[in-house]
Nucleic acid binder design. Structure first.
Lengths: 150, 150
DNA sequence: TGAACAGCCTGTACCTGCTACAGGGTCAAG
DNA sequence: CTTGACCCTGTAGCAGGTACAGGCTGTTCA
């Protein structure tokens, strides 16, 4: 199959396929007489593998590592487990940070409910105060965040 | 004050300050006779404002928008609220995606508990199956994810 | 015969939000 | 007179693609 079909079946962009080839993640395919790339079903499996890893947030260097494990089936899987564990820790940390961020944004948002002028807007006031080094609603202690509304 | 002091007081890198100036987020300061940048306390407030917004995950274009609101205090704050609401929605979506991702990684991780060879490793098997279009543990339905362990 | 159009090619620039140099100037202390 | 801290401009790099420019190929329709 040609690159367009591969991309479609792999649910990604043609440019992305070429990018993966350049990055050495996807084996370079045979070429037709006119120079067009000609892919086999194995290439589709490779692409699906990459996309699946990417959908799990695994970075390209780690995808490369996992591919190399596939090519050496006799090697110990210990490193695979560690790779996934690192990934889990990373994602967990991101989730925690973003949850905190969401709380902060909600606290900030609640300081302005009505339509008014920018100068009276609690959101801008908060941001201004924070810039001046004064305490702000959004970065208050979690307990204070809860009770900030009165 | 000079750029080093400003950066230190704003808890960021000297390069970052210059970057903000290039991007038009921070007003260009006066220059000393030798060409060194000379900042006022207003610049520090500007920098703090930017850093505070950034700590809330607000992108540079939106920081620019917020700054322009500060410069036009008579304008309606409606757009500010919408900006923050969009930000909340974006972060919320990210949190949800990452939580799902974390679940998927845990499900994947539980398919391999022991040290074995890569070919027998449940994690790699899962990834291979997914690449072949077969169902995988990690992207199973949430209910199935819970009960996958037995 | 030819014109339009989809699809492919290579190569390079762009995106975010910085970070990290290279290569050079300034200024105070020892 | 040298060392070292600080500053300057300009450019390249990171991840993971995305988006062209400029050109070739191959089919279809008139």
């Amino acid at each position: 199959m040609r690159i367009g079909e591969l991309a479609q079946r792999g649910h990604c962009d043609v440019e992305t396929v070429r990018f993966y080839e350049r990055e050495g993640l996807l084996d370079a395919p045979a070429r037709e007489g006119n120079g067009y790339r000609n892919y086999s079903s194995d290439h589709l499996a490779q692409l699906n593998f990459i996309r699946h890893c990417r959908s799990l947030g695994i970075g390209l260097p780690d995808v490369r590592v996992l591919r190399s494990f596939q090519q050496h089936p006799e090697s110990a899987c210990d490193a695979i487990n560690q790779l996934i564990d690192r990934q889990i820790a990373r994602i967990h940390h991101q989730v925690e940070s973003l949850r905190l961020l969401e709380q902060q944004l909600h606290a900030l948002r609640e300081t302005c409910q009505a339509k008014q002028t920018a100068s009276a807007c609690g959101i801008l006031q908060n941001l201004r105060h924070a810039a001046a080094g004064e305490p702000c609603t959004c970065h208050a202690e979690p307990a204070a965040v809860q009770g900030q509304q009165g």
